[in-house]
C-alpha cells in the first residue's frame, strides 16, 4: 500500500485528475471495443433471421 487513506488515494498526490482521467479513458476504450462487436453480432443475427423468415414462405 502506498497510500495512507482513501482521500489520499483519490487525490494521487495532486495528480488525481490526470491519473483517473487516463484510467477512465482506458476503461471506455476497452469496454467499447467489447460491447461494439457484441451489439453488432445481435444486429446481424436479427437481420439474418428476418431475411430467412422472408425468404422462406410459410409452410
Amino acid at each position: 500500500m502506498s497510500f495512507e487513506s482513501f482521500a489520499e488515494f483519490i487525490d494521487m498526490g495532486g495528480h488525481g485528475l490526470y491519473v483517473w482521467l487516463s484510467y477512465a479513458i482506458a476503461l471506455v476504450v476497452i469496454v467499447s471495443n467489447i460491447v461494439n462487436p457484441l451489439m453488432h453480432k445481435r444486429q446481424i443475427f436479427i437481420e439474418q433471421a428476418r431475411r430467412l423468415r422472408r425468404e422462406k414462405p410459410k409452410s
Partner: peptide
C-alpha cells in the same frame, strides 16, 4: 494501489 510512486514524477 500497491506500486510505489515515482521519486521524480510522483503519482502521475
Amino acid at each position: 494501489v500497491f506500486a510505489p510512486a515515482d521519486y521524480q514524477q510522483g503519482n502521475s
